[in-house]
Write a protein that binds this DNA or RNA. Structure first.
Length: 721
DNA sequence: TTCGCTAACTTTTTT
DNA sequence: AGTTAGCGAA
């Protein structure tokens, strides 16, 4: 262990040796915080004889948890397997699988992802007979999630949130939606992401016995990326640490980029108030980046007002200048990047896997992907349309979910007629209304379909067969065997085998891939069940699927990039409207979060940073011209490579985009932000944002009745008040 | 009543 | 561009 200390700087060493009592570790980008956490755990185990099962390490992603376990394994060997290292959501799911009975749920509960949530909300609106055109399910989902993150229940919503939006019918209706949503979740024996946390807190509040069990089990708690925790997670950590106070949180307020998900920066800023005896330490030496890169990062983040003052420093070399390129459009951006990558590969043995491309929005990956594919450069895209979101994969997963938890009507509805078995919307509707009348689940209605006289005998028979199909599987059998039997018995693949198109074949391939994923999962965990597999899939994050053994270029959003590092980083689309994003420009807080996002991107780079943007960009059907991001201006000019190709190629610029085209300009009707307008259907509202110009401009209006909606200027037909 | 085709909308970030 | 809603055919 003593050699272990030699590689640490004094502050790091102090942090590792501080084992009892609360510790706040303010760790700047690239300051070696993961190292400190793992060493700290190793130190607890080896030098203080703390049993590994008494340690809980909460990370932001499963990938980070796995990496921590791997490093820990190097330091202390096999015993590291007994440390609980996982995400908030996974840890809570694990706790709830043991103890959720006490809250009146069944242990076979299903976890709903955000798409499932939206489906359920549509359902809720239907049962409440509310038009889902006026009340966007996604907006409702967002409001519910925000409430849950703040530990606000349906019955408290009116008082705590609605009251802040006087005369807002949408917010006034929210408690009803929220309440009904929660009821239907329970009826489906399902939990959404937020429930995992909130119900664990409930469990602890309700049973001191359970709470004490976990308090004593997790005598040492470490929370990584603490700046991104929400209030509910804060309550959870506080409850767990209340007895022993051995809580170490690690975070960086400058890297807080998840406030849209309810992350509450106060959790880090107030930590010192919660634990008066806290020891605070700062890791400010950066080991990752060159001086140039770090200075650029420092300068950018220095423009934020809401932050703990600090300035990272590094002993590393100055390094090369930052590349800056303003391309013609997104294809030109991509061309430039590829040119640089191939050039570097030729000159200085930079590997593909040394290079990462970051963007603000997933949509930006497409242009890059096309060019990379065309140029035969191997790449991986993190996030976007993930494997587990493919239609055919979701179908099979829905089958598995129903097998484990027949009460899950969202999944049931997905597969009851897939493949086509002659059970259409009307029959399903009758089935569901019967279920509702009797107060039973849809699946229970299926089991007594003979009693439903509205359904014709032929259809009854088909429904009965479907019910038997589901019941013919053993949920406790191994996931792989269930899947194989399922594919066999359901004739699911037949629809694609008959088709024979490229697409159908790739769908079959994806199912095969799913099978091998299940096989792999079983190999790692011999106790795997269908339920545990489904859970791991739902709680997997984009980044968990990242491949870091093979030599490929990695593309991902700036959000996904947090916690990673690459020798060569390209940030694309560094433009006003994209970074900072158009939706964030209006508010100071949100703008500062965009700046932090930019900071996160810059600080991922070890040796070389390229900042790239384009003169114009395709958005939907038409082009928009764009202005370089204000964040570029915040970087001192002398840090940029002065010889760089900063002249945009002036090709046929005028012809294809024409913001001043007269007839279009008239069509935007002279709308202004802040104006009060009336819409035929949505009623009164106020213009929140206008994006673009002319008829193709999109106008976002915050309607009194139905929340925010974005309309095309040329079709909006708004009356100006 | 179910199914297949055409037409419209979306894209900020995510456990 | 890929899903969803709506319509007509079987």
């Amino acid at each position: 262990m003593s050699q272990l200390f030699e590689s640490l700087n004094p502050v790091q060493r102090e942090a590792v040796q501080h084992n009892e009592g609360p510790l706040l570790l303010l760790a700047g980008a690239g300051s070696g915080k993961t190292r400190v956490i793992t060493y700290r755990i190793a130190h607890l185990i080896q030098d203080h004889g703390i049993p590994p099962f008494n340690i809980l390490a909460v990370t932001f992603t499963n990938k980070a948890a796995d990496e921590m376990k791997k490093r820990l394994d190097h330091l202390v060997g096999d015993v590291s397997q007994h440390v609980w290292a996982s995400t908030f959501h996974s840890s809570c799911a694990r706790i709830l699988r043991r103890n959720i009975n006490q809250l009146g749920y069944d242990r076979s509960f299903t976890i709903y992802d955000s798409k499932d949530q939206v489906m359920l909300i549509k359902d809720v609106l239907k049962t409440l007979q509310v038009d889902d055109k006026l009340n966007q399910p996604k907006a409702i989902q967002n409001r519910i999630s925000m409430a849950k993150n703040r530990f606000i229940r349906p019955d408290e919503y009116a008082e705590k949130i609605s009251s802040q939006f006087p005369n807002n019918p949408f917010e006034e209706a929210m408690p009803i939606y929220y309440g009904q949503y929660q009821k239907q979740l329970r009826d489906n024996n399902a939990l959404d992401f937020d429930d995992l946390i909130i119900l664990t807190v409930d469990l602890f509040n309700q049973s001191t016995e359970v709470l004490e069990y976990y308090q004593d089990k997790f005598r040492y708690i470490m929370v990584d990326e603490y700046q991104d925790t929400n209030h509910c997670q804060y309550l959870l950590v506080r409850a767990l640490a209340a007895k022993h106070h051995n809580i170490c949180v690690v975070g960086d307020d400058d890297q807080s980029i998840y406030s849209f998900r309810g992350a509450d920066i106060n959790n880090i800023l107030d930590f010192e108030k919660d634990y008066p005896e806290v020891k605070t330490m700062r890791l400010e030496q950066n080991y990752r980046s060159t001086k140039n890169i770090l200075e650029a990062a420092n300068e950018v983040i220095g423009n934020n007002d809401i932050r703990k003052p600090k300035r990272l420093w590094t002993g590393n070399q100055a390094g090369t200048s930052i590349g800056l390129y303003r391309g013609f459009d997104e294809n030109d951006e991509a061309d430039y990047i590829i040119k640089k990558i191939t050039e570097r590969r030729r000159l200085r043995s930079t590997k593909y896997s040394d290079c990462a491309i970051f963007y603000r929005t997933n949509a930006q990956s497409r242009a890059l992907e096309e060019v990379l594919r065309y140029e035969n450069i191997p790449y991986q895209i993190i996030g976007g349309h993930r494997f587990y979101e493919r239609m055919e994969v979701k179908d099979v997963l829905a089958y598995l979910k129903v097998i484990v938890n027949p009460a899950d009507t969202v999944s049931l509805r997905r597969i009851i007629n897939v493949p086509r078995r002659g059970i259409g919307a009307t029959s399903l509707g009758r089935l569901e209304s019967y279920a509702r009348r009797r107060g039973i689940s849809t699946f229970e209605a299926i089991e007594q379909v003979e009693a439903i006289s509205e359904i014709k005998a032929g259809t009854q028979e088909r429904i009965r067969e479907f019910g038997q199909l589901i019941k013919s599987f053993q949920p406790s059998a191994s996931p792989l065997s269930v899947t194989i039997d399922l594919l066999e018995a359901s004739d699911y693949l037949e629809q694609f085998e008959k088709d024979g198109s490229v697409e159908a074949r790739s769908r079959i391939e994806n199912i095969k891939e799913l099978e091998s994923a299940i096989a792999r999962y079983e190999e790692i965990d011999p106790d795997a069940t269908v339920a545990s597999f489904l859970e791991s899939v739902t709680l997997a994050s984009d980044i968990d699927g990242m491949e870091d053994e093979t030599d490929v270029v990695t593309l991902m959003t700036l959000h996904s990039a947090k916690g990673l590092e690459f020798p060569v980083v390209f940030m694309v689309g560094v433009e006003e409207g994209l970074l900072p994003h158009i939706n964030s420009i209006g508010s100071k807080e949100e703008l500062e979060e965009e700046r932090r996002l930019c900071y996160v991107g810059i600080t991922r780079a070890q040796k070389q940073l390229y900042i790239v943007n384009a003169l114009r960009r395709r958005r939907g059907r038409d082009f928009e011209s764009s202005v370089p991001s204000r964040f570029i201006d915040e970087i001192p000019p002398d840090l940029f490579d002065q010889t760089s190709e900063y002249q945009p190629p002036q090709r046929k610029l005028i012809s294809s985009f024409d913001p001043d085209e007269p007839d279009e300009a008239e069509m935007d009707g002279g709308y202004r932000v802040g104006q009060i307008v009336f819409h035929v259907k949505f009623g009164r509202g106020r213009i929140a944002r206008i994006i673009g110009v002319g008829g193709s401009a999109r106008i976002t209006v915050r309607f009194d009745r139905s929340g925010e909606r974005t309309l095309m200027a040329q079709y909006a037909n708004l009356q100006i008040a």
